[in-house]
Amino acid sequence: MKKRLMLAAVLAAAPFVASAQGNGLSYTYVEGGYTQANIDYDDELLGDFTADGGYIRGSFELSPSFYVFGSYSQGKDDDSVAIDFGGGDVVTFDVEDELKQGEFGLGYHMAMGEKVDFIGELAYVRLDEDFSFSTSDGDSGSDDLTSKGGRAALGLRGGSDTLEGWVKLGYIDLGEVSGDFIGTAGGQYKFNKTWGIVAEVEVIDDLSRFSAGVRASF
């Protein structure tokens, strides 16, 4: 009787196990690479802010439905502007702007088909921007802005053993920065079950971010 009950339990659970593990989507991985953030300041003098840098990201599956994730990115933009104050008084401003972003959150995924998962995410987000300048006549200054808040997103992730993609739409509120919608789209090409290359685009109002890197899935 016990053997029959165990066999019945295994057969009942088999479709859920196949759905969670047989779609080739891993929620335990580490990745890193290049990132570029662009902010449209609508400033004719300094122009847009474009920060080039790097990022790291990771995810760990806690159960067949839940996972935790985190990321950190950092980029810097250097610019030089000459301003003519009249009377032959031209001052050169060397400007350095650095953007850092960290995120940590909890995700949920549920199979919607053989190769597609529904995903939902809640995350804490911190954004730091450090601004400094020096001039040709010896002046200098600096300022920094720290924004903290949360992000919530819903989306789809799916694909095959070789290619996969994901799209997410959500809302982000960083306190000092007014809340806004956030959209994310990305994809991965897999060389094998472990290694792949990834690319992702994220858009939040005037801020857009592109990243490309290498992912190791487990």
Score class of each variant (00 low, 15 high):
residue 1 M to A: 10
residue 2 K to D: 13
residue 7 L to M: 12
residue 8 A to W: 11
residue 8 A to N: 09
residue 12 A to L: 15
residue 14 A to I: 05
residue 29 Y to I: 02
residue 30 V to D: 05
residue 32 G to W: 11
residue 34 Y to H: 08
residue 37 A to N: 07
residue 41 Y to E: 11
residue 41 Y to F: 12
residue 54 G to H: 07
residue 54 G to F: 15
residue 55 Y to P: 04
residue 58 G to D: 06
residue 62 L to A: 12
residue 64 P to E: 05
residue 65 S to C: 02
residue 67 Y to F: 15
residue 69 F to L: 11
residue 72 Y to L: 14
residue 76 K to E: 15
residue 78 D to L: 05
residue 80 S to A: 10
residue 81 V to A: 03
residue 82 A to Y: 03
residue 82 A to C: 06
residue 82 A to F: 09
residue 82 A to Q: 13
residue 83 I to W: 04
residue 84 D to C: 02
residue 85 F to N: 06
residue 88 G to K: 01
residue 92 T to G: 00
residue 93 F to V: 13
residue 93 F to C: 03
residue 94 D to W: 07
residue 94 D to A: 08
residue 98 E to P: 05
residue 100 K to N: 11
residue 100 K to W: 02
residue 101 Q to C: 00
residue 102 G to K: 06
residue 105 G to Y: 12
residue 106 L to A: 03
residue 111 A to W: 11
residue 113 G to C: 04
residue 113 G to E: 10
residue 119 I to H: 07
residue 120 G to M: 03
residue 123 A to K: 04
residue 127 L to P: 02
residue 128 D to A: 03
residue 132 S to H: 00
residue 135 T to E: 01
residue 140 S to C: 05
residue 142 S to F: 06
residue 142 S to E: 12
residue 144 D to Y: 10
residue 145 L to E: 12
residue 145 L to C: 00
residue 145 L to T: 12
residue 145 L to F: 13
residue 146 T to W: 06
residue 150 G to M: 11
residue 150 G to K: 01
residue 154 L to D: 01
residue 155 G to N: 07
residue 155 G to F: 07
residue 156 L to Q: 00
residue 159 G to L: 01
residue 169 L to S: 05
residue 172 I to N: 06
residue 176 E to Q: 13
residue 181 F to Y: 14
residue 182 I to E: 15
residue 186 G to K: 08
residue 186 G to F: 05
residue 187 G to T: 03
residue 188 Q to Y: 00
residue 190 K to G: 03
residue 190 K to C: 01
residue 191 F to A: 03
residue 191 F to W: 14
residue 196 G to K: 02
residue 199 A to Y: 07
residue 209 R to V: 15
residue 212 A to G: 14
residue 212 A to L: 12
residue 212 A to M: 14
residue 213 G to A: 04
residue 214 V to P: 02
